[in-house]
């Protein structure tokens, strides 16, 4: 699990953690019932305050991404499979839109773009 914290970002640190853990869940890097590092350990590793990681975990728990077992720790919650897939599709859509915008800015046609997409789709494992 990689979490990268930027101290110069305007985004509060707890939000950076929440966003990145959500992404890891959506991408399937963190799966149901996987144990997360403890609040204190994560704070120590990231060199941030315990309150910050605590707030991040509370937010994730409130939104149903994780659940905590008193005395044991926090685990990844069961995700709604449909919802998860929908979210992943949204990610693909976002990236496609980005590609289309880039293509339009250099006046590639839809056919050209489609050819490219087909080529890469077959190439990438």
């Amino acid at each position: 699990m990689d979490i990268i914290i930027s101290n110069s970002s305007q985004e509060p640190i707890y939000e950076q953690i929440v966003r990145q853990i959500k992404n890891l869940i959506m991408r399937g890097d963190l799966v149901e019932n996987e144990l997360l590092p403890s609040i204190r350990n994560l704070a120590k590793e990231l060199q941030i305050s315990v309150i910050t990681t605590k707030r991040a975990y509370e937010e994730l728990e409130r939104d149903g991404y994780i659940y905590s077992v008193p005395g044991k720790g926090s685990y990844i919650a069961a995700q709604n499979k449909e919802l998860l897939k929908e979210m992943r599709i949204k990610i693909v859509e976002g990236k496609l839109i980005e590609a289309i915008e880039a293509a339009k800015s250099i006046e590639l046609t839809l056919d050209e773009l489609y050819e490219m997409l087909k080529l890469f789709y077959e190439e990438v494992v």
């Binding site: 101290n7 704070a43 060199q47 941030i48 305050s49 315990v50 309150i51």
Partner: peptide, 12 residues
Amino acid sequence: HITSDLDKIADY
């Protein structure tokens, strides 16, 4: 009075 020590790890 060296607050950069606290910017990171202090809770309060």
